[in-house]
Design a protein around this nucleic acid. Sequence first.
DNA 1: ACGCTAACTGAACGCACGTTCATTATCAAA
DNA 2: TTTGATAATGAACGTGCGTTCAGTTAGCGT
Lengths: 195, 195
Amino acid sequence: MARKTGSHSEITGPRIRAEAMKLFARHGFAAVSMRQIAAAVGLQAGALYLYTPDKEALLFDLLKDHMDGLIAAWQEKRGGESPVGALETFVRFHIRYNGERPEAVFLSYMELRNLSPENFAVIEGLRRAYETELENILKAGQAAGAFLVPDTKLATMAIIAMLTGVNTWFREGGRLSRATVEDIYWDMVRKAVSG
Amino acid sequence: MARKTGSHSEITGPRIRAEAMKLFARHGFAAVSMRQIAAAVGLQAGALYLYTPDKEALLFDLLKDHMDGLIAAWQEKRGGESPVGALETFVRFHIRYNGERPEAVFLSYMELRNLSPENFAVIEGLRRAYETELENILKAGQAAGAFLVPDTKLATMAIIAMLTGVNTWFREGGRLSRATVEDIYWDMVRKAVSG
DNA sequence: ACGCTAACTGAACGCACGTTCATTATCAAA
DNA sequence: TTTGATAATGAACGTGCGTTCAGTTAGCGT
């Protein structure tokens, strides 16, 4: 085995994904060329194919990694709390985790249609799994009498849309801090599902 | 003046916009070619340039028409009601109007970045004007003691994100009717802004 | 010092893109 | 029936696309 220390491939792969994420998020998957990505990394276009079989796989990897990370982080965070406590944990987790990865979140909502049907199904399945986590909290709270929600699936979609929407307007260093935003959103969600 | 009755241009123009809307919404602006649009209408690509100066203007017209229509429809709907009544009117209006135009709404949220800075500013301004309508309702309700919202701008964004999110999952003929969805969302919004 | 291989280049492939334009078909008005 | 504008064609323009691949560079292990 040659080239262990200082191997470029362990550096170049992540850099390609990072630059691709930035460019896809900024201009859209279809509007970004392999040559643009390569130039951002400092390579010729052909070199990208040492790291990805094609352009779509590059997008898929970004989306898959994001969803896996999201779900794994939530599995670590969730506890055996009461329904209200669990909902608060979810709300704060979702705002914080997504707030730290605006580009990945943006991609995950905008570029799904550029995936093949098979890859689309994978990402869609992961998203559904994540949504189910919230729905289970709502179901448990409804059963325990802690929440009053006529339809848990609808409430799930409403809450997630509301929380994810933070990314469309929140700017670091703006009028409100992340913590304040978390507090206010949690207050709105809490009231929205209460009796 | 020749060609009055049966003039094609009065038919072809709208048909181009309709097919462009469908294709842009389905595949994304950058992924749709002028040749695809032309083929959907039954023309050669060159003929499109009798109706639009370029591809971006086609997108801009669609977005501008949508926003103008949205704001005009709201101006007709709004009345001199109480804050709670006005908020209910807004919630039901937003869900219904956007629900009837899923493609235009989708475009308005996804393809803004394909506009030139000048055109982007126009659409952004219209969107802000629409958001201000909701914020003014919340401000009035807060002042009158009908609502308890720590930050009206934040509540505005949260409510709009939640309502617009309906389009991502609602399907005609599904488990819930439009009217039921309206009712449940209004209930959640009402509780979320209450004291 | 040398061989080996991972890492990358640069040119090329065929194709599709947005846009332009000379030409042609169509049809109302005269 | 002629006229003249409107509506549309179809070929062409230069450009950039995703992807492939033979060849070149660089650096570790021996």
